[in-house]
């Protein structure tokens, strides 16, 4: 109990110092949340540079709006939400409609589907990054962040049916990529 209180006081002190624009506090906050937030940004970007841009833009928003943070709630969750919103903003303009050949993707065998489970974290990340921006965003928001299609549609400015369709396409494509990686490993 005492430890929890001390940690909270430390976090409060850090937040107050960040609000006062003290550089040491901003650096501390950045270092503390960098690993997880960079992981979030990597899922939404298709390269390291873009993910860094999303991360930095997100942290700027964090420093600007830290005064609105409600003490007592999870700071990590609050920053993560800002990062996700920033990622969505980042790729909203770069959204492109792409057509996919679903027939090819549906011809996966059950053995290949099971093989996907053996892929590593890096391979899964690489596969997600290879998706097109809109598929990648919908997949991240639904599969990892847990947003319903209604919210995804509202955030991305698309219809619910489009959101569902994009998710399906993303899954199919992802499965295909992971399966091909498994096949390469097998060879």
């Amino acid at each position: 109990m005492n430890i929890a209180l001390n940690l909270r006081e430390t976090e409060q002190t850090l937040i107050q110092a960040c609000i006062r624009q003290e550089r040491w506090a901003q650096k501390k906050l950045y270092e503390t949340h960098y690993p997880k937030m960079m992981g979030v940004c990597l899922r939404y970007a298709n390269n390291q540079e873009d993910s860094r841009d999303i991360l930095h833009e997100g942290f700027i928003k964090v420093f600007r709006n830290l005064g609105k943070y409600q003490p007592g709630t999870s700071l990590n969750a609050w920053i993560r939400r800002i990062m996700v919103n920033t990622a969505i903003d980042f790729y909203r303009k770069s959204q492109r409609r792409r057509t996919e050949d679903l027939q090819e993707a549906w011809h996966l065998t059950s053995q290949e589907a099971d093989a996907v489970s053996t892929c590593t974290e890096k391979e899964i990340l690489a596969s997600v990054q290879q998706l097109s921006p809109v598929y990648r965003t919908v997949f991240n928001l639904y599969a990892i962040e847990g947003y319903p299609h209604k919210d995804i549609a509202a955030r991305l400015g698309i219809t619910e049916s489009t959101s569902r369709s994009n998710l399906l396409k993303a899954r199919v494509k992802l499965q295909g990529m992971l399966a091909s990686k498994y096949t390469e490993h097998g060879k």
């Binding site: 690993p35 997880k36 860094r52 059950s110 990892i144």
Partner: peptide
């Protein structure tokens, strides 16, 4: 099988962490 992909991706990527890069702070 497709939903299985969701679970796989979630388990692998939800708590993924990247090692801190000091050079990134300079840019920040």
């Amino acid at each position: 099988r497709l939903e299985h992909i969701d679970q796989l991706a979630r388990e692998a990527l939800e708590k993924m962490e990247v090692p801190y890069q000091a050079a990134d702070w300079a840019a920040m």
